[in-house]
């Protein structure tokens, strides 16, 4: 009995070591090997700082929009009856199962020169592709599901007794939302926002297609990692990766802290 437990535990540990922890520790090992100063120089290079600014700008636009949409669509899915609910569900889940490259290509075809919207935007001198708007659209697309996927099950679980009670006591729909619904789903929302942010900061494939990766212009932090690696500036690639990994670990910490409180909210 004990030996079986130990066997399974060692199997799990060895697998995690070979697939997850081992590779991840390489960031520190490689930075040590390629030189901390080289990594630092690459990090404070103008193009790298610009890349982080672009990533941040996209996240600042995409995360609030997706948070608002996530909450509204969750309330609609759980509390309302309307025709086409199945379709709404499918579209919300689709980005989870769809390749980011396909997302990027779809936007490329819609806003490209021969696309339905492309010619109108081009004739009005509004640049969507190879510019911030296209990258924001791509990032919103890939991070659509995360808030809704956390909020929908929580809304189902809490039921609508309290909301009904508030309505009976004369609260308006708006008051009920702010005083009853939002406080009881707040941890699910926070969890969803954290996941959305992580997805926005880490997006690569969809943004790679629509941005054109123009150095110092439309390059995000993740595209910059690719660029540095292709240019054989490994110290730079690992340096930027270290910052991105640090953000990911911060995300994990917030997730771990907000997880257990879900039940008590």
């Amino acid at each position: 009995m004990l030996s079986r437990k130990l066997t399974l535990r060692s199997l799990a540990f060895v697998y995690l070591l070979m697939i997850l922890v081992g590779p991840l520790s390489m960031i520190f090992w490689r930075i040590g090997k390629d030189g901390v100063t080289n990594a630092w120089d690459a990090l404070i290079a103008h193009d790298t700082i610009h890349a982080f600014q672009v990533t941040l700008t996209i996240a600042i636009i995409a995360v609030p929009l997706n948070t608002l949409f996530g909450i509204v669509v969750s309330l609609a899915i759980v509390r309302k009856k309307f025709p086409g609910k199945g379709l709404v569900n499918a579209f919300v889940d689709l980005p989870l199962a769809l390749s980011p490259v396909v997302v990027g290509l779809a936007l490329f075809l819609l806003y490209g020169r021969t696309g339905w919207f492309g010619s109108w935007f081009i004739s009005h001198h509004i640049q969507i592709l190879f510019a911030l708007p296209g990258m924001v659209l791509a990032t919103i697309f890939v991070s659509v599901p995360f808030v809704a996927r956390e909020v929908v099950p929580t809304l189902r679980e809490i039921g609508d007794d309290q909301e009904q009670a508030a309505r009976t006591l004369g609260a308006s729909g708006w008051q009920t939302f702010w005083r009853i619904t939002l406080p009881s789903i707040r941890w699910a929302v926070i969890y969803g926002v954290v996941l959305t942010t992580a997805r926005c900061l880490g997006e690569f494939g969809a943004v790679a297609v629509v941005s054109g990766s123009i150095q110092g212009k439309t390059e995000t932090a993740t595209l910059r990692v690719d660029e540095e690696y292709q240019n054989l500036n490994y110290a730079g690639a690992y340096g930027i990766s270290l910052v991105l990994a640090a953000i990911a670990i911060l995300v994990l910490i917030i997730m771990t802290v907000s997880r257990p409180k879900e039940g008590t909210a």
Binding site: P23, L195, T222, S241, A248, V251, L252, I253, T256
Partner: peptide
Amino acid sequence: ALIDLPFALPTIVAGLV
């Protein structure tokens, strides 16, 4: 907590490591 890391880490960083 570590199990969720691949969800939080940019995939290009995953590929690199």
